[in-house]
């Protein structure tokens, strides 16, 4: 199917503007920049395939984020993930400001969460989505989002503070 240059230009402009943000979301989901790039490539290809729809919706970023998260969850179920360079191939350093050790610990802890739990935490606490918006993105119940959030945070706390019985909520 021939695509016009206007179509391509508009797509390229959007991806150029938003790929850094999408790559960060992908990194938080995958825990690895190389895997994040693979995921981003898959998601951006899907965006191109459906670009006429993406530009027709009010919330293009929400659409792109949903495509990215669904691609991540689908590929965690498939053999694709086994072909991706695993965590540890490139030891990224966190941003210079803040608690370096804490952030590295958080990264390791996040990677150990089940994919849907990780996706829920990233959507709720990085993308700042409500419970309802997260449920819509993941096509699950709000109750499921709440339970996954609670379990995910609890698990992170236990991994980050293995000896703490009581932590702040």
């Amino acid at each position: 199917m021939a695509r016009s240059s206007a179509y391509d230009d508009e797509f390229t402009e959007y991806v150029s503007a938003r790929s850094a943000w999408l790559r960060q979301v992908a990194f938080l989901l995958c825990g690895d920049w190389h895997a994040a790039d693979e995921l981003l490539q898959v998601a951006v290809t899907r965006l191109y395939l459906n670009w006429s729809r993406v530009r027709a919706v009010e919330n293009s970023d929400g659409y792109a984020r949903t495509v990215l998260v669904n691609a991540y969850l689908a590929e965690r179920r498939s053999s694709w993930v086994r072909r991706v360079i695993p965590f540890g191939g490139y030891e990224e350093r966190p941003a210079a400001d803040g608690d370096l050790d804490g952030v590295l610990d958080l990264r390791r802890a996040l990677v150990s969460l089940p994919p849907r739990q990780r996706a829920v935490l990233v959507l709720r606490y990085y993308c700042d989505l409500s419970v309802e918006e997260t449920a819509f993105t993941l096509r699950c119940s709000q109750g499921n989002v709440k339970s996954q959030t609670a379990r995910g945070i609890d698990r992170l706390r236990r991994m980050l503070h293995p000896h703490a019985e009581e932590v702040s909520s």
Binding site: F27, D37, V44, Y48, Y125, Y126
Partner: peptide
């Protein structure tokens, strides 16, 4: 923590928009 993690030092992106198209 997630915001700081997302700003981690990253290798150059391998996303190739022309190849995607």
């Amino acid at each position: 923590g997630l915001r700081q993690l997302a700003r981690s030092e990253a290798p150059p992106t391998r996303l190739d928009v022309a190849a995607v198209r």
